[in-house]
Nucleic acid binder design. Sequence first.
DNA 1: TTCTAGATTGCAATACCGTTGCATGCCCTA
DNA 2: TAGGGCATGCAACGGTATTGCAATCTAGAA
Lengths: 137, 137
Amino acid sequence: MKIKELEQLLSARHIKPTAMRLLVLEYLQQQNAAVSLKEAEEAYEKADRITLYRTLKTFEEKGLIHHIDDGSGATKYALCEEGCQCAPEDLHVHFHCNSCQKTFCMPKVAIPAFQLPSRFNLQEINLMAKGICADCF
Amino acid sequence: MKIKELEQLLSARHIKPTAMRLLVLEYLQQQNAAVSLKEAEEAYEKADRITLYRTLKTFEEKGLIHHIDDGSGATKYALCEEGCQCAPEDLHVHFHCNSCQKTFCMPKVAIPAFQLPSRFNLQEINLMAKGICADCF
DNA sequence: TTCTAGATTGCAATACCGTTGCATGCCCTA
DNA sequence: TAGGGCATGCAACGGTATTGCAATCTAGAA
């Protein structure tokens, strides 16, 4: 993707497009699985761990990416769909492969509705499915 | 609950009933919310943190309790229902209160079915709902 | 009862992840 | 060009999970 397009993606979320951020955004777009801070760090050895951490944090605050807690111990991050506001109705299932340890967004698998007892006020939902992914099957 | 009953619960899961384990089991039964290692530690100051950790780990391996990753950073534990094998069909929703930070099992709220793409093999499911619990509402 | 093997417990130490403070550097604007 | 604000990089810290090893306990055999 051209730099201009990347810059537009950042600007659309009100994120100032710095060199670092463009690199990280490009990297995230190239992934088909969610990435941990450590993975991103290893992909760009030049980059500082903390700066990467803060870059991801900024991206998340601005709604460009969302984090996934897959139980592996390390938080992972993946790009949001265009127009996603991370509201409950935008949420999708995440799948963690117990074989290759990768974590995937399944944007087409919506989280099915369920009924909580009354007086339980729902704000967020997170559905982690685990098993063996298509590549490892 | 009488000690004999506690011992039977442990024996039924092939766990040798030691004094420590009986205490921890009794403690777990008294909770209405899932407990973290830290909370258990504070409840029994005499007990060693690592022993508690390993006790919980043993309980989990034997299917007496299950752990819940509620995103708070600390793993929490709660008793399994009687006869639970922690298979996908045994699974229930967990609710984390963003106000009091407690995490509850909702054994009556089953996780609704959803369709993964073919060749994705499902082994575990974890559905975390977050919001405001009935007590804090 | 005594002995022994194996399991359990307790202490110490470690690894890892997330997070914050502070100083420096860059960019944009007035 | 000078100044303010944001971004970056380095160092340090805190918390949780985890392992190694030695001491202790338990259960079963002799």
